[in-house]
Nucleic acid binder design. Structure first.
Lengths: 221, 221
DNA sequence: CCTACCGATCGGTAGG
DNA sequence: CCTACCGATCGGTAGG
């Protein structure tokens, strides 16, 4: 059933229906969908944090439910199953990568774009639980989800490789093997969540700056 | 019971005992202990390979037993339990690190020692299943084993940090933050098993040379 | 969103 | 080194 702009006058003969509820308080309240999405997000974030702290297989759905003050069956309203939950963690982290990509476009040359993307990615990653999935074993995903994640990761790496090729063309980066160079620094970057401590002496921006500096020295023309 | 050189003449009145068996065929055969150790090693290597391919929790002891053509209970003669097996995988990988350390001592200055250790470590790592444990979740170890592994890993990192400090002193390495620099390139190095393919276009030595080159450019004075 | 429950897997052991 | 088996955990579902 498609309809135009939301009706402002309650439909006749529908006094206490769900639909009228939606406009009460002038929509100051979240819609049902928004509430569900917020709950799902809370679940994903809780899961990411717990998986990182104790591991995927050492965290039961019961644990997660307890952390959210609900019971296990309740979780199944928001996710299909445990693997689906892990998949959502991965998606979340990859979305950060896309954000970093958007930020990179403003760079002047290949090297600058590369550095912008790298720095932004590190900042987003250190800022968030999302880092968990970078440490995760892809074998814990279903075959289809695993393929999907690998594809997105490859696409992310390809963006980096293209920036390197661009930099070699425009003279900002010395000739090098793009595949190997990306493997090198992405390995370093994706390992950050293993040791980074939010309450440590360095901020995420500090790490980003330091890593960008090391990379620059290694590959600039 | 301690005794001198192994007796060459069978002890009197011990015609068919274990002890006499040991010198048969002039010791061309392995001793019982050596055989057991060889079997244990086969188990550890099989486990490392399987864990890497499918993950620790997605590999049952039954799977491992089947791969070795024995039954599950048999495995318990060689290991205490599954966690113990994982622990042995970690030990094995860390032993490679020690080998690399030995090889590094011959370097002339800080930078050269660092590069020798790094290259050797990469070569050993790409050559072997052992790489699995680098990808493993330490939370799958018992508390004591986890602590022990973390301690050895820290010691390994400290060697690298000391080489960097040495290099800064002797002028072969530019001033930099040793902790951060080690975190950077060890992240890159430990990620190699995620993508390295024994049958790919690059050998382990190729990767070692390329990574050493990138590191050199990033930190030399 | 909960109570109650099932089924399967799997690490580990007994006993020979 | 094997046959046989136990106990516990845990993902997932029924039904309301």
């Amino acid at each position: 059933m498609t309809m135009g702009p939301k009706a402002k006058i309650p439909a006749r003969k529908a006094p206490a229906s769900r639909k009228t509820t939606l406009v009460r308080w002038n929509n100051a309240l979240q819609s049902r969908d928004e509430i569900n999405e917020a709950k799902r997000l809370a679940l994903v974030r809780t899961a990411g944090t717990a998986f990182k702290a104790r591991g995927f297989h050492n965290t039961s759905l019961e644990d997660l439910a307890a952390a959210l003050n609900v019971t296990k069956p309740t979780l199944y309203y928001y996710i299909d199953n445990k693997q689906d939950l892990l998949y959502r963690c991965h998606q979340y982290a990859l979305d950060l990568g896309d954000q970093a990509h958007d930020y990179a476009r403003d760079g002047q040359d290949g090297l600058e774009k590369l550095l912008r993307m790298l720095s932004r990615y590190i900042e987003l990653m250190t800022d968030d639980f999302a880092a968990y999935s970078l440490l995760s074993d892809l074998n814990d995903l279903s075959e289809e989800h695993k393929t999907a994640i690998q594809k997105r990761r490859r696409a992310f790496d390809t963006v980096f490789r293209n920036f390197i090729n661009e930099g070699i063309q425009d003279g900002s980066i010395r000739p090098c093997d793009p595949m190997l160079t990306v493997a090198w620094f992405m390995g370093a970057v994706n390992a950050i969540p293993r040791w980074f401590d939010t309450k440590g002496r360095m901020t995420g921006a500090d790490v980003a700056a330091a890593y960008a500096d090391l990379l620059t020295r290694a590959i600039r023309a």
